[in-house]
């Protein structure tokens, strides 16, 4: 648990250092060093998780997670918007990979197509459109209240992580065996630990869902049966978004004459 908090703190400092400041971007070396340190820390965590089981997917999952986090860090810290967008694409791909590991094929592919394909393209398009000066625009290098921002973000992360990973239990948790579920008596000693205990014990939920769990056909029927209304609403939402975008675009033309 302490290790996790340590990770979060180091991550916070690193990111803080990484955020664009008045002067030139931080030396690449420092950035790389920090990123690597953070990644190593993360890998150590993931590995010595109390998992009696070693599933074949573990190493790839670790790699993809690290990749995703690094990409995310770069998206946030990079001073040039275009590179941020590109790193975002990398992130999406890493995410898709993780989803695949979880047998959510349709979602993974959907993610890649919609996100990487549609949304990011629009972003890049707008970035190009709104690029006025060559060098770095002042508002890109200058971060606002970086300290407070990082503080807020990482505190949130620390707490979430703490919540997920297991509470800072004053007494030592007694375990049936290495990596086994929390002994029953530990639970009744600290009744409020019940939910996390269940979280920790992966063993009894390893039942594989069987092949084709996340395939389009399964997901499609699921969507159209139990979420039929939601689907319709999503359609309407998209329609509204389109109409909105067109309205803004049209007014923008007339507005232009005024502003120009």
């Amino acid at each position: 648990m302490l290790l996790l908090t340590l990770l979060v703190v180091v991550g916070g400092i690193g990111l803080y250092m990484a955020l664009p400041r008045g002067r030139t971007a931080p030396a690449r070396g420092v950035l790389a060093l920090l990123a690597v340190a953070a990644a190593a820390m993360l890998v150590a965590i993931l590995i010595n998780l109390p998992s009696g089981i070693v599933t074949p997917a573990r190493p790839t999952m670790v790699a993809l997670s690290v990749l995703a986090l690094l990409a995310a860090v770069r998206v946030v810290t990079h001073s040039r918007p275009v590179y941020s967008a590109l790193y975002f694409v990398l992130l999406v791909l890493a995410n898709a990979g993780l989803l695949l590991l979880m047998q959510a094929e349709f979602l993974a592919t959907g993610l890649v197509i919609i996100y990487a394909g549609a949304i990011l393209v629009t972003y890049i398009f707008v970035i190009m459109l709104a690029q006025q000066t060559s060098g770095k625009a002042p508002y890109d290098t200058e971060a606002r209240e970086p300290l407070l921002g990082c503080l807020a973000g990482f505190v949130l992360l620390a707490v979430l992580a703490g919540g997920i990973y297991g509470t800072a239990v004053p007494g030592e948790l007694k375990r049936a065996g290495p990596g086994g579920p929390l002994a029953a008596e530990a639970i009744d000693v600290r009744p409020d630990l019940a939910p996390n205990a269940a979280l920790l014990s992966d063993v009894n939920r390893l039942s594989e869902p069987g092949p084709g769990h996340g395939t389009t056909e399964r997901l499609g029927t699921h969507l159209l049966t139990s979420y039929f209304l939601a689907m319709e609403l999503a359609g309407v939402l998209l329609l509204a978004a389109m109409v909105g975008a067109i309205a803004i675009a049209r007014r923008q033309l007339s507005g232009m004459e005024g502003a120009a």
């Binding site: 990111l15 955020l19 986090l69 995310a72 860090v73 998206v75 946030v76 508002y139 890109d140 200058e142 971060a143 606002r144 209240e145 970086p146 407070l148 921002g149 990082c150 807020a152 973000g153 990482f154 949130l156 992360l157 979430l160």
Partner: peptide, 11 residues
């Protein structure tokens, strides 16, 4: 949280 930090700090 990274997204949150980015949202809050970037200009």
């Amino acid at each position: 949280s990274l997204g949150l930090i980015g949202f809050v700090t970037r200009r």
